[in-house]
């Protein structure tokens, strides 16, 4: 049973990792927090679920979800970041929180306030790997989450645009002087973060079997805990922290009590913050000073 519980935890962590990565990209590029990212994930999941209900294959729904995520992230960028003064640190936080409210309210208005059921994928598949069993949906979640994470690594590491994103996150002044179109790079960063959030939304929906219009803020919060634990701006740290939190939450629920689930994460993050403010894998203290 422990094997199964550990696998459950890794699966949960994998979905956390995707939103956290999206969150982290924006922190890296702009030193600002996009508090509408959780709602972006939620809307993408709703769009994906609606398409799956109409009988379209999962692949189409998934593509639609990530496209929705990317598009919404661009809209949020324009509304809450592009024209909002960065002299007031609270301005873009409030503005993106406002966008989050709008997205939730629009979904409630169009689709209602009920939880929306997310149909199963590969319902017949059930792999018994000895230590644990993997259902079809779980297989899809773990494979797609892994693919997207690896894809992000490769993109950031091997491509020109990826290098530009890392450059902007390291030193915007320098890369601007070198002729990198900073605004376009930031736009690309937001799109990517939205794509990751969109994928995370639908995959989380698969894992939870449903999506609720009110899930958005919780996802944002979890992502925040993950990136603080892993270190702001650190991709590797984010992935590891997500898995740690996923496994920790699962084991807490299984062997202690569900009431302690969030508490244990908060305590862990609180201790890490006070003892090691740059997070477990923080690259430098520079980002901290600025955010």
């Amino acid at each position: 049973m422990l094997g199964q519980q550990l696998f459950n935890g890794v699966l949960l962590g994998a979905t956390f990792a995707l939103v956290a990565l999206g969150f982290n990209l924006v922190v890296g590029a702009m030193d600002r927090l996009n508090f509408a990212l959780g709602e972006t994930a939620m809307v993408s999941a709703v769009v994906g679920a609606v398409l799956m209900e109409t009988g379209l294959p999962f692949a189409v729904a998934f593509l639609a979800a990530i496209a929705t995520g990317g598009l919404l992230a661009v809209i949020v960028y324009v509304a809450s970041f592009r024209y909002v003064s960065d002299r007031f640190p609270t301005a873009s936080i409030l503005s993106s929180l406002g966008m989050g409210l709008v997205l939730t309210a629009v979904v409630v208005k169009v689709f209602g306030s009920d939880q929306r059921s997310v149909p199963d994928v590969l319902a017949g598949v059930d792999l018994d790997l000895g230590l644990f069993r993997v259902s079809g949906a779980q297989l899809v979640i773990i494979v797609l989450a892994a693919l997207m994470t690896v894809g992000l690594y490769v993109f950031l590491d091997r491509t020109v645009w990826g290098t530009a994103i890392r450059g902007v996150s390291d030193d915007p002044t320098m890369v601007a002087l070198l002729g990198v179109p900073v605004q376009r790079v930031i736009l690309l960063t937001f799109t990517l973060s939205g794509v990751l959030a969109g994928a995370a939304g639908l995959l989380t929906g698969l894992a939870y079997h449903s999506v609720s219009p009110f899930d958005g803020f919780t996802s944002t919060l979890t992502a925040l805990m993950v990136i603080v634990l892993g270190g702001l701006g650190s991709v590797t740290g984010g992935v590891i922290a997500a898995l740690v939190i996923g496994v920790l939450q699962t084991l807490t629920v299984a062997y202690l009590s569900a009431t302690l689930r969030d508490l244990i994460v908060f305590v862990l993050v609180g201790i890490v913050l006070l003892v090691r403010p740059q997070g477990l894998f923080g690259r430098n203290a520079g980002v901290l000073e600025r955010v």
Binding site: S80, V84, M99, K109
Partner: peptide
């Protein structure tokens, strides 16, 4: 009514552009 939350959210978006202070 059910437009309230939408308008409320947009209010913050607009306000932060026009008067971030």
């Amino acid at each position: 009514n059910d437009w309230y939350m939408i308008v409320y959210g947009l209010l913050f978006v607009v306000l932060m552009i026009v008067r971030p202070q």
